[in-house]
Amino acid sequence: MNTVFLIAALGLLVSTAIAMVRVVGGPTVLDRIVGVNVVGAQTTILLILIGYLFDNISMFLDIAIAYAMLNFILAIGVTKFFLRRKSARGGGGGEEH
């Protein structure tokens, strides 16, 4: 069963790498937030799988719960923050436009 968990964890790493393309290259700030959200959801699962592989599930589960909540707060907070900035509209960070 550990093999299945290991394969799943590797698959999650691959998909995190794909999602990182959007985080790095997204045209607007909101695109990056969506990418970070997806990476956060994948990290929640990855943490629990790591807990199984290290045989310490109850500790890693608490971290995973905190991470899931943090993921939600991050989306709400960063969205509110960038709502008042012109830079959310286009360009990279807004400096070059």
Binding site: G11, S15, I18, V34, V38
Partner: peptide, 30 residues
């Protein structure tokens, strides 16, 4: 059952990641 569910979940994660890279605009990426 556990292996099928887990690998299906990982499959949908990969599809989601491919989706947010490939879709043309912000709203469809959501």
């Amino acid at each position: 059952i556990v292996a099928v569910l887990l690998l299906l979940g990982v499959f949908f994660f990969i599809i989601g990641a491919v989706g947010i890279v490939r879709f043309p605009d912000f709203y469809s990426r959501l």
